[in-house]
Design a protein around this nucleic acid. Structure first.
Lengths: 148, 148
DNA sequence: ATTGATAATGATTTTTATTATCATTTAGTA
DNA sequence: TACTAAATGATAATAAAAATCATTATCAAT
């Protein structure tokens, strides 16, 4: 199952690259592989360190550029929490979710609530505002940190 | 009414400063005055430009530092939207609200929905997460921009 | 009013994440 | 195989915010 998803993920990337008239390079393959296999909320620096082990000649700029490209292909999304470095989240299949952000350990927990989504739409409508996307973050202390 | 609020706002600042064993200076007075009287979502740069007219010797750093101090006193709150400069929002009386963010003109519209707040608390609880604060931003196109 | 301790200020530098630049290399095509 | 344009990697530029530090100002004690 992991393998299939990875293949789909990569194929989506390749398709997006072709649509834009861009080129699929060795570096891009290594980056998309590593990004898919890495944790869900990675920084460009972390990804750079992983990729470097597989492809030592790679430059930081290339990793950063390709994370931006993955975002443009809707395969990644920037998460900016406070003053932290931007993290890049995998976003295959477009399943929207919100985040619980642990203020102690920094962990991001993905959550979803249809009722909240609906109420948000309603709230926007009430203000004659056309919503395009939204961001909900709840900051607090996660279960793990509480039990410590 | 405006005057009274301003007075209250300033007194709260002075009280907070005293509690921390800090000093109420001329610069601080000018800054808190200007911050209160300015629009609700100001950047440090904008505030600096306003303050400079009243107190030309003032330095940027002083304005920045005192915006941070206002935040520590819970009289201001940082709003970070995308790659924009941090904006500082007045926060007197602690009335929490969320934002509709217009992607076209950049306007911030303050909104509030009790039902959403309650569902958020519920969502946190379900994850055994203790919420401390939260941030909800809905991005889209505002009424004004749509009618243009 | 004066003094002394210390906080605040203002000018400047540093930091840090991200983007831009540019010479060189590489990919894809004719 | 050669050509055109994109991609790369090294480095510089940007920009916002924080840190530094010498000087000034505040305030309590005298």
């Amino acid at each position: 199952m992991d393998k299939i998803n990875k293949k789909e993920f990569k194929n989506t990337f390749i398709k997006c690259i072709e649509e834009k008239g861009l080129r699929y390079t060795k570096q891009r393959e290594v980056i998309v592989d590593a990004f898919f296999s890495a944790g869900r909320h990675i920084t460009s620096e972390e990804l750079f360190n992983i990729v470097k082990r597989i492809y030592p000649e790679i430059g930081y700029a290339t990793v950063q550029r390709n994370l931006n490209l993955l975002c443009k292909c809707s395969l990644a999304e920037e998460i900016k929490i406070g003053k932290q470095k931007t993290r890049y989240e995998q976003k295959y299949g477009n399943t929207h979710h919100d985040h619980l952000v642990c203020l102690q350990c920094g962990r991001l927990i993905e959550v979803n609530d249809d009722k909240i989504e609906k109420l948000q739409a309603k709230l926007a409508k009430k203000n004659n505002f056309t919503p395009i996307k939204h961001k909900l973050e709840i900051y607090g202390i996660c279960a793990d940190c509480k039990s410590k």
